[in-house]
Design a protein around this nucleic acid. Structure first.
Length: 290
DNA sequence: AACCCGAACAACCGCAAGGAC
DNA sequence: GGTCCTTGCGGTTGTTCGGGT
């Protein structure tokens, strides 16, 4: 099946985006929503490849993008998730609200990857300081986790599978321990399992609560207007399936930018991931947000 | 002040999956 | 069922910027 080029290269702008281009793209997407990237540049009046528009929007212009330095907690989370998932940046990014896969990938390649490379080369816990700005204590903590993972590598595969369904926990538990987990369905599920979880523990809400749920996941009113119905349909669909079963069947474990664990099937038992949660807490949302 | 170098980040590219027809 | 199109992902390259000499 021959692939057609994503766009004609002739007459198109390349390289850095100008403020005007950003404004045009943002305004267009705000007015018409995402999607149809191939035809978007023409409709918006941009001399850009659709792919380039999509990337610019996803990695830079999206309103929910968190800018600024990666915090210590986020770094720790990235390290742990990388140990678990390998270079599946989109999945890792899905666990870090407001961070993009590209950002995390860059951060890894420029900072953490080198650090871990040096660590493994030295083969010791000797201090390595490629990034002196990071706190030593935090760094040691990260290193110890990295070395733990080296003993127990669990890199699943390097190619991500596309998300085809979005799974959002139907009810945001009031218990503060679960509040942080609300944005981390994997943790929610694991905790649920640890507690002998069932749909009774996390009763699923009806579609009427969708707006609040979406807001809890960082959607603004525009998002809800644009996609609320779609998400609510998903909610209603999933409401007919017990929560844990739905997660396994749908294979999704993140909100919005999730993955498909279905392929892991025999090789990946979600319970086996519990070791990640055994010794230490995942960073809470309050800690992650800068 | 000029130059060099490395880090950080933005953007591009090729490939593959999934859906529509 | 096959083909084509769209979208998303991960790897790589290019550019910018700041610090050191």
């Amino acid at each position: 099946m021959g692939r057609s080029p994503c766009c004609s290269k002739e007459g198109l702008n390349r390289g850095a985006w100008t403020a005007l281009e950003d404004k045009i793209l943002s305004s267009y997407i705000k007015a018409h929503g995402e999607g149809k990237w191939r035809s978007l540049p023409k409709r918006a009046g941009l001399k850009r490849c659709g792919k380039s528009c999509r990337l610019r929007w996803l990695n830079y212009l999206r309103p929910d993008i968190k800018r600024g330095n990666i915090s210590g907690d986020e770094e720790e989370l990235i390290v742990r998730l990388h140990n678990l998932l390998g270079n599946r940046w989109s999945l890792i990014a899905g666990r870090l609200p407001g961070r993009t896969d590209n950002e995390i990938k860059n951060y890894w390649n420029t900072t953490l990857g080198k650090k871990s490379k040096v660590d493994s080369f030295s083969g010791s816990s000797k201090e390595t300081s490629l990034n002196p700005s990071k706190s030593i204590a935090k760094k040691k903590d990260v290193e110890s986790k990295t070395s733990t993972a080296a003993v127990q590598p669990l890199v699943i595969r390097t190619k991500a599978t596309r998300l085809t369904k979005i799974l959002v926990p139907q009810n945001i538990p009031s218990d503060e321990n679960y509040t942080a987990a609300a944005a981390n369905p994997l943790e929610l599920q694991t905790q649920s399992a640890e507690k002998g979880g069932s749909t009774e523990e996390f009763p699923r809400t009806n579609a009427g609560d969708c707006s609040n749920i979406l807001k809890n996941f960082g959607c603004d009113d525009d998002d809800i207007d644009a996609k609320g119905d779609q998400y609510c349909n998903e909610f209603q669909l999933l409401n007919s399936i017990p929560l844990d079963e739905a997660m396994i069947n749908d294979g999704c474990w993140t909100g919005g930018n999730g993955c498909d664990l279905e392929d892991y099937g025999a090789s990946l038992d979600l319970d086996s991931l519990a070791f990640l949660l055994d010794s230490e807490e995942w960073p809470s949302q309050e800690n992650v947000v800068v």
